[in-house]
């Protein structure tokens, strides 16, 4: 357990604002500080468009904070960092590449040897259950399968921290449920530090070791929950339901 409390990523006092329609600056992320521990499954939970994606982009180095900083293993993040993996909400698969080429995109850009990265890619392709689809193009896959490719691609790049940005938001409820099971299986086999963003309370409770609840726009930390329910979790378990109710009552409704 002590290993859990080794801080991997330190987010200190970051804020970000954007000009609104009237040209005034409006806060999207308001002074957030957060430690991400090694090996934990951290869920960032917030209603609708609460500024979570902005926070995420800053963590990933795709966006610069106005104030504060993000530090990974003692090193400040100022640009996209290959130590961070990303599973995008809209999958972001490159339509001109096959499943295999999408998954090996990262290692190829880095100039790794083909033999090594193909082997690794195959391992993750098998793990997410896409064996036999290596040569398919994204348009030939269903929504759930596309996101499996997205997950395999992120893992194959061997990140220290894996960011998943509402990865199942576009899927129907049943596919979503099975993808959540899938992620749990993968996490069990290949433990990494994961930052998972969602607006779905049930999903947060299914997966998270720790849940950070955000306010509606701008994003501030409202409450932090440690979820001490053993996995895999039963959605009809009373403790689960009570905690779900508590979080639900604490969440801002974004109609």
């Amino acid at each position: 357990m002590e290993q859990k409390y080794l801080t991997r990523l330190k987010i200190s006092n970051i804020s970000k604002s954007f000009p609104n329609k009237e040209g005034k600056r409006e806060l999207a992320v308001d002074n957030i500080s957060l430690d991400v521990y090694d090996g934990e499954f951290l869920v960032l939970l917030g209603p609708g468009r609460c500024g979570k994606s902005v926070l995420l982009n800053m963590i990933a180095g795709l966006m610069k904070p106005d104030e504060g900083k993000v530090v990974l293993d003692g090193e400040e993040i100022t640009k996209p960092n290959p130590q961070m993996g990303m599973v995008f909400q809209k999958t972001g698969l490159l339509p001109w590449l096959t499943v295999m080429d999408n998954i090996t995109f990262g290692p190829r850009q880095r100039g790794e040897s083909k033999k090594i990265y193909t082997e690794r890619a195959q391992k993750y392709i098998d793990m997410v259950g896409l064996t036999g689809f290596e040569k398919s193009y994204p348009y030939q896959l269903s929504g759930g399968m596309k996101q499996r490719v997205g997950i395999a691609r992120a893992y194959t790049n061997e990140p220290k921290i894996l960011i998943m940005d509402e990865p199942f938001g576009a899927l129907d409820a049943q596919t979503r449920y099975s993808m959540e099971q899938e992620v749990q299986n993968i996490v069990e086999k290949d433990r990494r530090t994961i930052i998972f963003v969602t607006n779905n309370i049930e999903e947060a409770l299914m997966l998270g070791d720790r849940i950070i609840l955000f306010t509606n726009y701008p994003a501030r930390i409202k409450k932090i929950y440690d979820v001490n329910i053993s996995k895999p979790r039963d959605t009809m378990d009373r403790t689960f339901l009570m905690l779900r109710k508590e979080i639900s009552e604490n969440t801002d409704l974004a109609l």
Partner: peptide, 25 residues
């Protein structure tokens, strides 16, 4: 989004982005 994907997956130079993301897209 494709540019972000490129940047997150090690396409660090302009030329890499141009060749492996922008042109095919």
């Amino acid at each position: 989004l494709y540019l972000d994907v490129g940047k997150m997956f090690n396409a660090s130079t302009e030329w890499q982005l141009l060749r492996s993301i922008v042109l095919p897209a």
